[in-house]
C-alpha cells in the first residue's frame, strides 16, 4: 500500500505530471480567449466544449457497451425540440429544452429495449435504421420541421458570442463532473458490469436491461442538452444535424480520446480543434481534405491504440488499480 502523501506520488509519475501541466495551460488558454474578443477562437472554443460534452455523453453510453453509432439522432432531437417549441408553439426556453429531453428519453428507451433483444451487427443496423427514420421524417414533415432547409430561431434569442462561450464551457465542465460522479456511483459500477460480463451480472441478480436503458437515457439526455445549446449557437437549424458526419465526429472524439476516461473527450476534441483550424485556414474547396485527414487519424488510432489518447497518460497497470 502506498503510504507516501498523494502529492509526492503524483510528482513521481512523469506522465501524470505532464498531463497536469497540459491541463493547466489549457485552462489558462480557455480563460484568455474571451479576453481577446477573437470571434474565430471563440467559435472554435464553443465547438470544442460542445464536443467534449457530447463525447462524455457517448462515454456514458459506452459504460454499458452501447456502441452508439447514430448519436447525432439524440443531438438532433435536442436541436429540433427547442427550435420547434420556440417557433411553432411559441413556448418558453425551458419548455423547449424539456421537449428535446422527452423526445430523447423516448428514443433512448426504445433503443435500450432493442439492445436487450439484438446484439452486434444487428443492433448497429437497428440504430442506423432508427436514425435514418428520424432523418427522413425531419426532411419530409415540412410543416413541422421546415424540411431540409429547416427553421430559424427567433431573433429575440440571439446571444452574444461571449455568453455562448461561457455557457458551452459550463456545459463541458458539468458533463465531465457528471461523468466522474456517475462512474464512481453504484449505478456506474452496475453499468460497467453489464458491459464486462452481462451473464454474470444477471446471475448475481442485477437488472441488466434496466441498467442498459438507464445509461442510454442518461447518454441521450446529455446529448440532447448539447443539441439545445447548439440551436442557440447556429440560430438556423436544418436536418443536417441528424447526419452521419456529426455521429462520426462524436465517435471520433470519444474513441480516439479514450472511452473509459473522463479526459478522453478532452483529448479527443483536439482533433475537432485541428479540423476547425484546417477548414478555417484553407479555402473551402479543400474542406473535404480535412475530413480525409481526421478519418485517417481515426482509422490509425482505432488500429494502433484502441484504448485512445488518454491511455498515454496512464501507466498500463493504472486502470485496474484505480477503477476497481
Amino acid at each position: 500500500m502506498n503510504l507516501q502523501p498523494k502529492a509526492l506520488a503524483f510528482v513521481r509519475e512523469p506522465r501524470k505530471l505532464i498531463g497536469a501541466i497540459l491541463l493547466l495551460s489549457a485552462v489558462i488558454l480557455i480563460l484568455y480567449i474571451p479576453v481577446t474578443k477573437n470571434r474565430r477562437l471563440m467559435t472554435i472554443g464553443i465547438m470544442a466544449f460542445m464536443y467534449i460534452a457530447l463525447g462524455e455523453s457517448w462515454n456514458i453510453g459506452a459504460m454499458t457497451g452501447l456502441f452508439s453509432i447514430a448519436h447525432s439522432a439524440f443531438f438532433g432531437l435536442g436541436v429540433y425540440g427547442i427550435t420547434i417549441t420556440l417557433t411553432r408553439f411559441q413556448g418558453p426556453v425551458i419548455a423547449g429544452i424539456l421537449a428535446g429531453l422527452i423526445l430523447n428519453i423516448i428514443l433512448a428507451v426504445i433503443i435500450g429495449g432493442i439492445s436487450s433483444k439484438l446484439s452486434g451487427l444487428y443492433f448497429t443496423m437497428a440504430l442506423i435504421g432508427l436514425s435514418a427514420t428520424i432523418y427522413s421524417l425531419s426532411v419530409q414533415w415540412v410543416s413541422l420541421t421546415g424540411g431540409s432547409s429547416g427553421i430559424s430561431m427567433p431573433r429575440a434569442y440571439l446571444l452574444p458570442k461571449r455568453t455562448l462561450y461561457f455557457i458551452a464551457l459550463g456545459i463541458a465542465v458539468l458533463s465531465m463532473i457528471f461523468y466522474v460522479f456517475l462512474r464512481r456511483s453504484k449505478a456506474g459500477t452496475c453499468f460497467v458490469t453489464t458491459r464486462e460480463n452481462p451473464s454474470l451480472a444477471a446471475a448475481l441478480g442485477s437488472n441488466v436491461p434496466f441498467w442498459r436503458i438507464l445509461s442510454t437515457v442518461l447518454s441521450a439526455s446529455m446529448a440532447g442538452l448539447c443539441g439545445s445549446f447548439y440551436a442557440f449557437h447556429l440560430m438556423s437549424n436544418n436536418s443536417e444535424v441528424f447526419s452521419g458526419a456529426y455521429s462520426l465526429k462524436i465517435m471520433m472524439v470519444s474513441i480516439v480520446g479514450g472511452i473509459n476516461s473522463v479526459w478522453g473527450p478532452v483529448l479527443g476534441c483536439l482533433l475537432i480543434i485541428m479540423d476547425e483550424y484546417i477548414r478555417g485556414s484553407m479555402p473551402s474547396g479543400l474542406a473535404p481534405l480535412s475530413v480525409v485527414i481526421y478519418a485517417l487519424i481515426l482509422i490509425l488510432m482505432a488500429l494502433v491504440k484502441p484504448a485512445g489518447l488518454a491511455s498515454f497518460f496512464e501507466k498500463p497497470g493504472d486502470r485496474h488499480a484505480a477503477k476497481n
Binding site: 470571434r39 467559435t43 443536417e240 477548414r279 478555417g280 473551402s284 474542406a287
Partner: peptide, 11 residues
C-alpha cells in the same frame, strides 16, 4: 454547404 459557408465567412 452551410457549415463551410459560415466558416468561410468568419475566415
Amino acid at each position: 454547404n452551410q457549415d463551410a459557408t459560415i466558416s468561410e465567412f468568419e475566415r
